[in-house]
């Protein structure tokens, strides 16, 4: 057997006990073993059971991705590890807040925001803050277009993802 060397992007959902240090464990695993993290989000999703959901976007060869999942499964507070990229269709979303400053590009930025279905969530005479939701590539396209129009600040949530269809993790 030989592994193809090309890197693949995978979105992995991990259900964990919401206890102190659990995020450090996951992050430490990635840094300690030299794996990539492209994005990582975490929040409690089942408060009654004390369970949080971590969504990790990572990249690596098939062998590395397998290692990442097996290493995650070894952690004691981890309930399930699900590789959304290979387990069927799924939805990925990210939210960004994008600040555009200055007066020159105001009208144009509003027009583009409209095309991207971004909302204005704050406005002054010389600035807007847009809220935009979508796949990361959509956010990137929007941010790129805002650059010449006075882009000064961006905050992004990182990717959250969920499988399509009736099944739960």
């Amino acid at each position: 057997m030989s592994a193809p060397n090309n890197n693949q992007r995978h979105t992995i959902a991990v259900l964990v006990d919401n206890e102190p240090g659990v995020l450090a464990r996951v992050v430490g695993l990635f840094s300690g073993r030299g794996y990539n993290i492209e994005s990582l989000t975490v929040a409690e999703t089942k408060p009654e059971a004390g369970v949080s959901r971590i969504t990790i976007v990572t990249s690596g060869t098939i062998q590395i991705i397998e290692q990442i999942k097996n290493q995650l499964r070894r952690l004691v507070p981890v309930h399930t590890v699900s590789d959304l990229t290979i387990e069927g269709p799924h939805v990925e979303r990210e939210l960004a807040l994008v600040k555009v400053s200055g007066t020159a590009g105001r009208v144009e930025s509003l027009r583009i925001a409209d095309i991207f279905r971004a909302r204005v969530v704050d406005s002054t005479n010389e600035s807007f803050v847009f809220e935009i939701v979508g796949r990361p590539d959509k956010l990137e396209a929007f941010i790129k277009l805002m650059k010449p129009l006075g882009l000064v600040d961006v905050a992004r949530t990182g990717v959250v993802a969920i499988a399509r269809g009736p099944q739960a993790l």
């Binding site: 057997m1 062998q63 290692q67 097996n70 290493q71 070894r74």
Partner: peptide, 10 residues
Amino acid sequence: DPSSINKNVL
């Protein structure tokens, strides 16, 4: 340990 399998050698 599943992480031992395919770690260094496929």
